[in-house]
């Protein structure tokens, strides 16, 4: 899969006046209200807010994991509103990376296998092992390639997750509280690595975080309150 190079001035992900509401019994809860946001290629953006403010929902919609109730969303230059889940998956395939708060590594796979997984889903991938090892080297874990997640610390697991996210050299990386489960020193290390890798691969970065320092490091800083950007 060729790397998607999107110049800085190009829009890579965008929401235009989106709303998201869910129905729970007789009640309808509005999670996002009239949110418009634009992410440019190679730039970084943070989304902060208190718990339940809608930041993770916004991240999911931006990444094409979910759809808004109304409004328009585009990802990698395509409007995704009318796409089904398979079409959105195809759009993400090899071009979008993810880092989660709780790592989401597969416990029965070694570090190398976890990283390889991202390449295995991309049709016609080649040199999977070599590229996965290179990604692990980028995060300083080549020596631990044969270790299972249970044999690693939290910081190491998150580095493996980071290697999995960047192994396809994605156009955009979405990170949901990437340092939320880590101590201060490890958080700093992961943060540094994430920014550096995104810069190396010209990937855009969207990060949901409570960490003010991390948020401020990004090119754009958005705060969300009660489903609205403020």
């Amino acid at each position: 899969m060729d790397k998607v190079n999107i110049p800085p001035e190009h829009v890579i992900a965008q929401t235009i006046r989106i709303n998201k509401s869910v129905t729970m019994g007789p009640e309808t809860i509005n999670i996002l209200n009239d949110v418009s946001l634009t992410i440019y290629g190679g730039t970084s953006a943070s989304i902060s807010g208190i718990s339940g403010s809608g930041k993770t929902t916004l991240l999911g919609i931006l990444a094409g994991l979910d759809l808004p109730s109304s409004g328009t969303v585009s990802l990698l230059g395509q409007t995704i509103n009318d796409m089904n889940e398979d079409q959105r998956a195809q759009l993400r395939c090899g071009k979008v990376g993810f880092v989660f708060q709780s790592f989401h590594l597969l416990p029965n796979l070694t570090a190398l296998e976890n990283v390889s997984l991202a390449l295995e889903v991309v049709p016609n991938s080649n040199q999977i092992r070599e590229r996965s090892l290179a990604a692990l080297e980028h995060v300083g874990l080549a020596a631990r390639s044969r270790h299972l997640p249970s044999q690693m610390s939290g910081g190491e697991q998150q580095r493996v997750a980071l290697a999995r996210a960047i192994v396809t050299k994605p156009a955009i990386l979405f990170a949901d509280e990437p340092t939320g489960n880590l101590d201060y020193a490890t958080s700093a290390q992961i943060e540094e690595m994430m920014f550096s890798l995104c810069k190396d691969f010209h990937s855009a970065l969207v990060v949901v975080t409570h960490d003010k320092a991390l948020a401020k490091r990004c090119d754009q800083h958005h705060v969300i309150e009660a489903g609205r950007l403020v």
């Binding site: 889940e85 998956a89 993400r92 395939c93 993810f98 029965n108």
Partner: peptide, 18 residues
């Protein structure tokens, strides 16, 4: 355990049929 694996694969862009 595999429900999680499937979700990860979906995130990474794998289609339902695959």
């Amino acid at each position: 355990k595999q429900a999680n694996e499937v979700a990860i694969l979906r995130c990474l862009g794998q289609q339902h049929r695959q």
